[in-house]
């Protein structure tokens, strides 16, 4: 088993990368993770494992990443600063690297008020940008915060998220620049439905030279129903779903809606591939991992490159 990041090798080799998302179970069952691993095997280059997303308690991201790694996949460890202070974050970074995890995505995390532990104390000791900076310092300088040396630095490809659709719009690209300057090697974006706005944001990123400094992967999520689209539009913060898309989903019979959602997703990927500066796509099929292969196939992204 090669012990380097496949995602990094694809991107550095100039390939168009494909990543997917795997949500760990609300339980201790490893088989759920391994089943998802089989659905995604050879369909994508790397698999993001969410970290108690929407602040719902689930199997730890590190453990699920380790299961994926053992199964021969390349996991992307999502880590949120909501639940751990700088001691725990740095410690987990070392642990993840020791387990052979080679990618990390540094995030703020959904606020705990939304989850099933609203009484929790939110930590937020570091913010996501500071966290990126710390991981970079650990990797490149072999030091932790405060300057102590590490006996061995972690080996991690560092990622960060970007939401081109949140407000204030003009500031979004400045924040992207900060994340890249902090040390992000790759960026995965929020789900893209409003391509017009996304292209404007990408144009600004190109003008600032950011697309040459980090690999930007566009995020996509297949819609299952018009109801889901409406829910995401109104209830999920930072989500921009144009009304035409909702109408398009409503315009097909109920039993064809999932298929239409996949069609939209494939078309979006095809459009994204034309956007200068985009280096890959991140397919977040929420609790619907089985369609990732079909989407990748129809978008012409298969087969995935194989490294010896």
């Amino acid at each position: 088993m090669n012990n380097s990041s496949k995602l990094k090798r694809v991107l550095e080799g100039g390939g168009f990368a494909v990543t997917a998302e795997c949500g760990p179970p609300k339980g201790a069952n490893s088989d759920v993770v391994l089943k998802k691993a089989e659905m995604l095997r050879n369909k994508v280059d790397a698999v993001n494992v969410t970290d108690n997303q929407t602040a719902i308690v689930r199997m730890s991201s590190i453990a699920a990443c380790s299961l994926l790694k053992t199964a021969g996949l390349d996991p992307v460890l999502q880590m949120v600063v909501r639940d751990r202070n700088r001691i725990a974050l740095q410690s987990d970074i070392l642990g993840a690297s020791a387990l052979g995890i080679r990618n990390v995505l540094c995030l703020s995390g959904d606020h705990h008020i939304f989850g099933n532990q609203p009484q929790a104390m939110g930590v937020f000791d570091l913010d996501s940008i500071q966290f990126v900076q710390v991981v970079k310092m650990m990797r490149d300088e072999g030091k932790i915060l405060g300057g102590d040396d590490l006996s061995q630095p972690p080996d991690l490809f560092i990622g960060a998220a970007a939401n081109p659709f949140a407000d204030p719009f003009d500031f979004r690209v400045i924040r992207l620049a900060k994340k890249i300057r902090a040390g992000a090697d790759f960026i995965q974006t929020q789900c893209i439905y409003n391509l017009y706005r996304f292209e404007r944001w990408m144009g600004m990123a190109r003008d600032m030279g950011l697309t040459d400094k980090a690999y930007i992967l566009g995020g996509v999520t297949p819609l299952k129903s018009p109801g889901m689209a409406k829910y995401m539009k109104t209830k999920v913060s930072g989500m921009d779903i144009p009304d035409e898309l909702i109408k398009r989903m409503e315009g097909v019979p109920k039993d064809k809606q999932r298929e239409e959602g996949i069609n939209i997703c494939v078309e979006t990927i095809q459009r994204l591939r034309e956007v200068p500066g985009i280096k890959g796509v991140h397919i977040m099929a929420i609790e619907w991992e089985e369609v990732v292969g079909e989407i990748a196939e129809r978008a012409g992204l298969l087969p995935r490159p194989v490294f010896g």
Binding site: R82, H111, I129, Q130, A162, D167, P168
Partner: peptide, 20 residues
């Protein structure tokens, strides 16, 4: 800031309102 960000805003801000 609900997330105590020093390098905000996070991706949840819409129309000048907090996601929470």
């Amino acid at each position: 800031c609900s997330k105590q960000l020093f390098n905000g805003p996070c991706g949840g801000a819409m129309d000048g309102r907090c996601e929470i």
